[in-house]
Amino acid sequence: MTARLAAPAALVGAVAVFGLVAFSSGPARADTSSTTTAPTTVSTVPGAQPGTVQQTPTAVTAVPSPSAAAKNAAPSNQGGIIYTDLPASFIAPGQALFAANCASCHGPLANGVVKNGVAIAPNLEGLGAGTVDFWVSTGRMPLENISAQAIRKPPRFNRIQTLEIAAWVQSLAPGQGTKVPLVKTAGADLESGNTLFTLNCAACHTISGAGDALAFGAYAPSLHLATPTQVIEAIRSGPGNMPRFSPGNITDTEARDITAYVTGVLQHPNNAGGAGLGGIGPVGEGFVGLLIGVGVLMLVCFWIGDRQ
């Protein structure tokens, strides 16, 4: 008798637990005004990691850098993105960090290493500070082990150290490559970012930014951890298998719109309908529909009917 009672009791319990989980993880409501405010609240600290020395990008630009001013014109500011010149004082410590951490593969002059006719590490000259900042701030460099594609992991260097390495690499070919961008996503056009993301990015990163496997062991990474600075650096430098999008292709304003969409909407998706199921579309939905939907109802059948 008690066994027969246990079945409905277990059902009620299971539903209650399911409800609690969904409530605690789900967003409040289909109230999309929260989505509007999200981009404005996104931190503009690029690559800031807990436990590392943090310095806001504005502070970086505030550092007086006479040598940078002499080499280059004033920081360019188009469409909400400021491409910064790193202070000259960063170069020397950057070289030391590079020699200790990167030179074993890229060579002491960062011009790449070729062994037996195979390039084991690329020449970094002319790639620019932004490119280096992307690879190091996402933790992809230094590599842990050689695989088809570097994976994102907690960065080894703090923000200042990263920028120092970037400054040194930049000093090898001044004026070339991608600079470190500063981007304020407030006021960006989310609709434009949405459209541009769908046209230019979704084919690899998927429409939800979850990423997916590509051919020959490569994969398009998830965008859910990318900072605004990293998004711009990736667009401009085209790391790994990613195409490069120059300003003639995607303007600074458009790049900022995309960034706002990625960091504002994709990283804080409006899951008004409940648990997002990983944002991988019908694959996840099919499993839930069959296992939970059909599965639970089969258990109910099992309860209602005879079992012999």
Binding site: A203, A218, N241
Partner: peptide, 9 residues
């Protein structure tokens, strides 16, 4: 729409 730049595919 999926262009793998490094492998030219």
């Amino acid at each position: 729409g999926l262009y793998q730049e490094k492998t030219q595919q």
